[in-house]
Amino acid sequence: MAKILMKGNEAIAEAAVKAGAQGYFCYPITPQSEVAEYMSRRMPELGRVFLQGESEVAVGNMLFGAASTGLRVFTTSSSPGISLMQEAISYMAGAQLPAVIVNIMRGGPGLGGILPAQSDYFQAVKGGGHGDYRLLVLAPSTVQEAVDLMMLSFHLADKYRNPVMMIGDGMIGQMMEAVEFPDEYKEDPLPPKDWDLTGAKGRSPRVVKSLFLDPVKLEDNSWLLHEKYERMKREEVRYELYKVSAKNKILIIAYGTMARICQTAIDELEQEGISVGLFRPISLFPFPEKEIKKEASKKNIQTVLTVEMSTAQMMEDVERAVLGAKPMAFFGHTGGIVPTP
């Protein structure tokens, strides 16, 4: 298919359509409302479900309900809206339901602002809701990558029977770039669904639940989930290197839009004779710990610099990866201020 110019939000919506999303639930919020606008036209056209709930709390539970029927479903929102969905997200993780949640982040805390931020890192990566669970978290840095990761998110959600969250800052949602969709959507084979609620006629009933009053059964469930997260750590680590070489004095760790801004800064520093490399995590959970440790431990690296649009949230994971092997530094803005190269 030829390249077309699309806004990040619209491209994410179309990627979900291409990946076979059968239900989309939403409540409008800047800066991701164009997803809802696009889907309100596109889904009925295809005879699929578009439903605007009365609040994000409702939307989260609609997603939970629809996911239990085994359909491919997703929602999109922005920071305060994602907070309202946390209960349902925790329930879905506990009940092992696949769903895709997109957070086009804006500045917080509270109602915050509407401009781009990366301040929901902890919420996405460390839980957000209650209980021993993790989301698989992916972070695109271009509109094309948002398309690719959106399609992948549905696959990974089904593969692990776990909610997958894609987080982009407001810039990813609002920016227009050239994108290319595959002519035909392809994915690796998935395990057959033997848990979905499709009506028990002619088979024994199934139960989808996150309530286990027997502590032994609850612990079993928690260790089962833990096994999945360990498997994700082995199989789903994704990252990209930019101008990483033995000449580097500094290694930058940055993701999303921030990583692109760092790329330009790295190009400018190269002109001035300063060699800097970039490690861009694409999967935030699982976090590329070993890989960062490996790059940071190289003899030529003097400092590991984390750059984020937040007050050093991801840096905690970077510190955990580097484990004191190298001096650390941080640069960032928050509240909707996007740093320039």
């Binding site: 390249k3 110019l5 800047t30 401009l115 609002q174 227009m176 770039e177 050239a178």
Partner: peptide, 15 residues
């Protein structure tokens, strides 16, 4: 895009 260039269009969005 027609001339095969890389493009990025960024709007001002805000209150």
């Amino acid at each position: 895009i027609k001339e095969d260039k890389q493009v990025a269009w960024i709007p001002s969005y805000g209150p």
